[in-house]
Lab assay of single mutants.
Amino acid sequence: YETDHQDYCEVCQQGGEIILCDTCPRAYHLVCLDPELDRAPEGKWSCPHCEKE
């Protein structure tokens, strides 16, 4: 299903190369994640907010 994702990072509120959560509309820079990621994850990815739930 399609979600309207943010076009900015949930953490720093800036645009650029962001990865999109497959569960919610949030988006993140790899370096803004904690722990940060070296590269975009393959397959489905859930953001830290969704992982907690």
Score class of each variant (00 low, 15 high):
residue 39 R to H: 05
residue 10 E to K: 14
residue 39 R to G: 09
residue 4 D to S: 08
residue 19 I to L: 13
residue 36 E to I: 08
residue 33 L to C: 13
residue 31 V to M: 11
residue 30 L to Y: 13
residue 44 K to A: 09
residue 37 L to V: 08
residue 4 D to V: 14
residue 39 R to I: 14
residue 53 E to Q: 09
residue 30 L to H: 10
residue 33 L to M: 08
residue 22 D to A: 04
residue 33 L to E: 04
residue 47 C to I: 00
residue 12 C to N: 02
residue 21 C to G: 02
residue 39 R to K: 11
residue 23 T to V: 07
residue 37 L to A: 13
residue 47 C to N: 00
residue 26 R to E: 09
residue 17 E to T: 12
residue 38 D to H: 13
residue 45 W to N: 12
residue 18 I to C: 02
residue 23 T to H: 08
residue 16 G to Q: 05
residue 8 Y to P: 15
residue 32 C to H: 07
residue 29 H to F: 00
residue 46 S to P: 04
residue 44 K to E: 09
residue 32 C to Q: 01
residue 37 L to E: 01
residue 13 Q to L: 10
residue 12 C to I: 00
residue 31 V to I: 05
residue 5 H to I: 14
residue 22 D to F: 04
residue 27 A to S: 02
residue 5 H to N: 15
residue 2 E to W: 12
residue 16 G to L: 09
residue 40 A to K: 07
residue 37 L to Y: 13
residue 47 C to W: 00
residue 43 G to Q: 12
residue 50 C to P: 03
residue 18 I to P: 07
residue 38 D to I: 04
residue 24 C to T: 01
residue 7 D to R: 05
residue 11 V to P: 12
residue 41 P to Y: 08
residue 30 L to N: 07
residue 52 K to I: 04
residue 16 G to W: 12
residue 4 D to Q: 13
residue 20 L to I: 13
residue 19 I to Y: 13
residue 23 T to P: 02
residue 21 C to S: 02
residue 6 Q to E: 06
residue 26 R to F: 04
residue 3 T to G: 14
residue 46 S to L: 11
residue 31 V to D: 07
residue 8 Y to W: 09
residue 13 Q to V: 10
residue 12 C to S: 00
residue 30 L to F: 11
residue 44 K to P: 05
residue 31 V to R: 10
residue 23 T to Y: 12
residue 2 E to F: 15
residue 33 L to N: 04
residue 40 A to G: 03
residue 9 C to K: 03
residue 16 G to P: 03
residue 12 C to F: 00
residue 5 H to E: 08
residue 7 D to C: 04
residue 29 H to V: 01
residue 50 C to D: 07
residue 32 C to V: 00
residue 26 R to P: 02
residue 43 G to P: 13
residue 24 C to N: 01
residue 32 C to R: 00
residue 30 L to D: 05
residue 47 C to M: 02
residue 38 D to K: 02
residue 38 D to V: 12
residue 21 C to H: 01
residue 31 V to H: 12
residue 44 K to W: 02
residue 39 R to Q: 07
residue 38 D to M: 03
residue 31 V to C: 05
residue 51 E to V: 06
residue 31 V to S: 10
residue 40 A to R: 08
residue 8 Y to E: 13
residue 49 H to K: 08
residue 46 S to V: 09
residue 50 C to A: 03
residue 43 G to C: 04
residue 20 L to A: 09
residue 26 R to A: 06
residue 53 E to P: 02
residue 45 W to P: 02
residue 40 A to E: 14
residue 46 S to Y: 13
residue 10 E to S: 13
residue 22 D to G: 07
residue 29 H to T: 01
residue 5 H to Q: 14
residue 14 Q to R: 12
residue 28 Y to P: 01
residue 9 C to N: 04
residue 11 V to D: 14
residue 39 R to N: 12
residue 13 Q to G: 07
residue 4 D to C: 10
residue 24 C to V: 00
residue 6 Q to M: 09
residue 46 S to F: 09
residue 46 S to R: 11
residue 25 P to D: 03
residue 20 L to E: 12
residue 53 E to H: 03
residue 41 P to K: 05
residue 32 C to F: 00
residue 39 R to P: 09
residue 43 G to M: 11
residue 36 E to F: 10
residue 1 Y to N: 05
residue 8 Y to H: 15
residue 9 C to H: 01
residue 52 K to M: 08
residue 42 E to V: 10
residue 32 C to M: 00
residue 51 E to P: 07
residue 52 K to N: 11
residue 28 Y to I: 12
residue 23 T to E: 10
residue 6 Q to D: 05
residue 33 L to K: 02
residue 11 V to Q: 06
residue 9 C to M: 02
residue 34 D to M: 03
residue 47 C to H: 00
residue 39 R to A: 13
residue 41 P to R: 09
residue 18 I to Y: 14
residue 10 E to L: 15
residue 3 T to H: 03
residue 33 L to P: 03
residue 43 G to Y: 05
residue 13 Q to H: 13
